[in-house]
Amino acid sequence: MAALPAQLRSIQHHLRTAQEHERRDPVVAYYCRLYAMQTGMKLDSKTPECRKFLIKLMDQLELMKKDLGDNDSISQEVVGNAHIENYALKMFLYADNEDRAGRFHKNMIKSFYTASLLLDVVSVFGELSEENIQHRKYARWKATYIHNCLKNGETPQ
């Protein structure tokens, strides 16, 4: 992909998550890009650099849909919704278990953060439930808090 224009910076983490899941879970990669596409269009689809970037992203999404067309999670958004929500919850629960066991490490920080990004992605299917909003807020806060503690040599509470 071409370099991300500054106006679209807020979708960079969702695009990175897509890249990281390209082989591990293409359905996750597809919906992360769909979220990035929708959000990017709202942010700026007028300036030439953003249009160029978004057209390339759309090309990529269309190709992915063609390749993954047989997958129910792609052809039926209701199945896709369940897939992304379950995946986000799985990430959240892994990080939460580590947290409650007092095991603080980079992987659990990343899991909290990825869970929060995937809950953003769930919004492509409709308004987020209150429970998802709370999980997203908690996961993002925990990721930042534990990251800062480890950076400063402190033990998270």
Partner: peptide
């Protein structure tokens, strides 16, 4: 002119919106 530029931009924007709707089977 500026208005030609604007029309081109909005046509491309519409094209993106249409492709997005098609991708999501909304048209």
């Amino acid at each position: 002119t500026g208005s030609v530029g604007t029309s081109v931009a909005s046509a491309e924007q519409d094209e993106l919106s249409q492709r997005l709707a098609k991708l999501r089977d909304q048209i």
